[in-house]
C-alpha cells in the first residue's frame, strides 16, 4: 500500500478515514487532528499555562510530543499510585515518563499518593472494597485538578482519546446515566473557584493511532496493562465497540461526534439540575457534601488501625 499523499510506502492504514499514510504524513495527520481539535473547540491559547496529566502510557506521551511540536509550553504531572510494588507497574511507568521529560528537557512534577496523601490505590481499593479503577479515577481527578490549581495553571490537559470517550459515552448510555452523560464534554470550563479548565485534545485520535505514533517516533511507553484493571467495564465496552468498528469503520467517531455535535446540549440540564455544589469543609474543593469524596477517602485511610 502507498501513502495517499506522496505515494511512498505506507506505514499505517486508518480505515475510518479511508486513508493510508507514510510515516511523515501520519505524523502530520496526527498533529493536524490535535491542532484542529484545540482550535475548533477553543481549548486554550498559546499564552496560557498548560499542565498535562502524564501516566507514562501511549496517549499522554504522544500528546506531550505533539503539543511540544506545535510550540506549546506544557508541563507534566505524574501521580505515583503505588501499584505493583517497588519494581512494578507504577514504578516502570514513572521511569518512562521521567525519561521522556528528561530527553526533551520538559518539566515533570511527581506526586506520590502514599507520601503526599497517605495511601496507595491497592490499599484504598482493599479498604473500601471498591473496584480499583473507581478509587484510582477519584484520586487522579482530585489530585490533578489540585496540582493544576495550586500551581497556577490555566488549563489541565488530559490524554483521553476517541476510544476512551466513546466507551464512556456507551457505558453511560447503556445505563442511561443522564447526569454523567450531561457532564461528558471535551472542554470542562472552570465553573467554580478551585476548578481548573479541563480539556481533551486527543478527541479525534483513536488509541491505535497514539500507540502507532509512539512506535514510529521511537517513544518508549508503558505497554503493560495496569495489573489492577481486571473487571474494568470500560475495557469490555471498548472491545464491543472494536467489534462494531471492524465491521463498520467510523462507528466510534460517528457515535461520539454525533453526540457532541447534535445531542449533548439536551443533557446539559440533567447535569445542572442534579448538582448543587459548595466548598468541601476540609480542602475547599467543590463538592455536593460537607466533605468531598476525596477527603472522605483520605480520612478513612488515615483512620485505619
Amino acid at each position: 500500500m502507498k501513502c495517499k499523499v506522496c505515494r511512498e510506502p505506507a506505514a499505517i492504514e486508518i480505515r475510518r478515514h479511508h486513508a493510508v499514510f507514510c510515516k511523515r504524513h501520519f505524523f502530520e495527520h496526527m498533529t493536524r487532528q490535535v491542532e484542529r481539535t484545540i482550535h475548533d473547540l477553543e481549548m486554550f491559547d498559546a499564552g496560557e499555562r498548560l499542565l498535562l496529566g502524564v501516566s507514562g502510557g501511549k496517549d499522554s506521551l504522544a500528546l506531550w510530543d505533539i503539543l511540544t511540536d506545535l510550540g506549546y509550553r506544557v508541563d507534566g504531572v505524574y501521580i505515583e499510585l503505588g501499584i505493583g510494588g517497588e519494581q512494578g507497574y507504577s514504578s516502570s511507568s514513572l521511569q518512562l515518563a521521567e525519561q521522556f521529560a528528561k530527553d526533551r528537557r520538559l518539566t515533570l512534577q511527581v506526586v506520590d499518593l502514599a507520601e503526599d496523601y497517605g495511601y496507595t490505590i491497592p490499599a484504598a481499593a482493599a479498604e473500601t472494597r471498591r473496584v480499583a479503577c473507581s478509587v484510582c479515577g477519584l484520586s487522579k481527578r482530585y489530585v490533578l485538578n489540585r496540582v493544576a490549581f495550586d500551581g497556577g495553571y490555566d488549563v489541565l490537559v488530559m490524554g483521553h482519546n476517541l476510544d476512551d470517550e466513546a466507551a464512556v459515552l456507551m457505558g453511560n448510555t447503556l445505563t442511561w446515566n443522564v447526569e454523567y452523560i450531561g457532564r461528558q464534554r471535551p472542554v470542562l470550563p472552570a465553573t467554580r473557584a478551585g476548578l481548573v479548565r479541563k480539556v481533551k485534545p486527543l478527541l479525534r485520535v483513536a488509541e491505535r493511532e497514539t500507540a502507532a505514533y509512539c512506535v514510529l517516533k521511537g517513544i518508549e511507553y508503558e505497554v503493560e496493562e495496569c495489573p489492577m484493571v481486571a473487571g474494568n467495564t470500560g475495557i469490555r465496552i471498548k472491545e464491543w465497540l472494536n467489534v462494531m468498528e471492524s465491521q463498520r469503520p467510523g462507528t466510534k467517531q460517528q457515535f461520539l461526534f454525533g453526540f457532541l455535535d447534535r445531542v449533548s446540549d439536551q443533557f446539559a440540564d440533567a447535569h445542572q439540575e442534579q448538582v448543587e455544589l459548595h466548598e468541601c469543609t476540609n480542602c475547599g474543593q467543590p463538592t455536593t457534601n460537607d466533605l468531598c469524596a476525596f477527603c472522605r477517602l483520605q480520612t478513612r485511610m488515615a483512620d485505619r488501625v
Binding site: 492504514e13 507514562g56 502510557g57 501511549k58 491505535r208 475495557i235
Partner: peptide, 26 residues
C-alpha cells in the same frame, strides 16, 4: 516498524502483536 494487513510475514520472522486497548495508563 509497523506492518499493514497486506504485508507478508516470513516463516523466519519474529513479529510482536501489541495490544492498543488500555484502561489504566493512557
Amino acid at each position: 516498524e509497523l506492518l499493514l494487513k497486506t504485508d507478508l510475514v516470513a516463516d523466519s520472522d519474529t513479529i510482536e502483536l501489541r495490544p492498543v486497548i488500555s484502561g489504566g495508563a493512557g
